[in-house]
Design a protein around this nucleic acid. Structure first.
Lengths: 199, 199
DNA sequence: TGTCAACTTTACATGGTGTAAAGTTAAATT
DNA sequence: AATTTAACTTTACACCATGTAAAGTTGACA
């Protein structure tokens, strides 16, 4: 049976995931990954061009495992206010799941053009989705008038960055619940028209 | 005259500064710095223990040149609302001046304990100052009651991070003015009691 | 003349990434 | 049964940046 022993590619991806998941690890090397996957270091290069490529593939693998795409799409029918909070909640709960990989990718960004491009690509997907939530608010006439839609999108997108999550969660010691609740409240307070801002 | 030719240490610091200031440069090496300072690579190690040490010294040098300490202290007498906006404005205008060095230090953080510690140290100073502004608001009864003072401080501190500035300024294309104005407005909207939040 | 500090020059150890190529193994092909 | 092929291992090495080591140069000062 081929299903008893996962194929090498998957073994490498899950090993990468496991290693990056544990916070302590500051610097995960290709040899660490190979060892964890019980595979030679060269086998890794047989499946992935380089370190950046492997990290990106791992990130995509997590997207698959966690079905983030369908989860986000489920929001698209909701009324604007619920959609806003829903999006903040879903993305905010997804961050801790992918933070390890994200962090490794971010660390590579300066100096590695491929890593940079891959990261920007992922983040622009987040930006787009944030924009949809803002558009929904605007469509229902709920968006405040002291910001353009683009400004609103880019502010919220920035607020929801992984770095901010990490700083509040790890440096400031916030609980995950407090993080989510607070971000939802801030989003409403900053983005909505006066009458709805206290909701 | 010893003043016509700046001492080597200063030459190295200003060379580091110049190189890190230009955005394009993704990866500034010790040899680049030495070359720019017209000094041998080894001379750099005569004045600074290692790369992290050099970057930290450069950051402190900028603090000196720009007199950030006294500038911030000038806020301490102001009424809470002006103090809040003043702090957001001063720090927000300081970020672009030190972003090059900050970025290089951030890039070293994972993997270099010394860089990590130095960065955390600098950021905790920002956090403390942010806390003072929050305390002033609380003292005048202006702080909203849906957050503790620590929460308010850590939220604002996070909002004012260099990464957020860079994302809005460079990725989202905001002007420096828009960045400052917006951050001041968000701070008021999120932190102040309902009656004052629209100010 | 001699000493000392600051700097240069040359050389090398280290550690991680990525490349190259020959060797092994087991399953599929004929 | 013999052979081909793909996937993987093993060994070796080039590269590049950091940091260390030590001998040589220079100029000021005593």
């Amino acid at each position: 049976m081929s299903s008893t022993q996962p194929p090498t590619r998957i073994k490498i991806l899950t090993a990468t995931w496991n290693l990056l998941e544990k916070e302590e690890t500051p610097q995960v090397r290709m040899s660490d990954i190979a060892k964890a996957a019980k595979v030679s270091r060269q086998a890794v290069y047989l499946h992935f061009e380089n370190r950046a490529d492997l990290l990106v593939a791992t990130a995509r693998h997590l997207d698959d495992v966690y079905k983030i795409g369908p989860t986000v799409e489920a929001l698209h029918g909701l009324p604007a206010l619920e959609r806003l909070s829903g999006w903040v909640g879903i993305w905010g709960d997804y961050i801790p799941k992918v933070y390890g990989v994200g962090r490794a990718l971010m660390a590579m960004m300066d100096g590695d053009a491929e890593a940079r491009a891959a990261w920007d690509d992922r983040m622009s997907a987040v930006r787009r989705e944030t924009g949809f939530a803002i558009d929904a608010l605007a469509a229902e006439g709920l968006l405040c008038d002291h910001m353009t839609r683009d400004e609103a999108r880019d502010f919220l997108w920035t607020l929801l960055s992984m770095r901010n999550w990490a700083q509040l969660r790890h440096e400031a010691g916030w609980s995950q619940d407090r993080y989510i609740t607070h971000m939802q409240a801030v989003a409403r307070r900053v983005l909505l028209k006066g009458a709805h801002a206290q909701a």
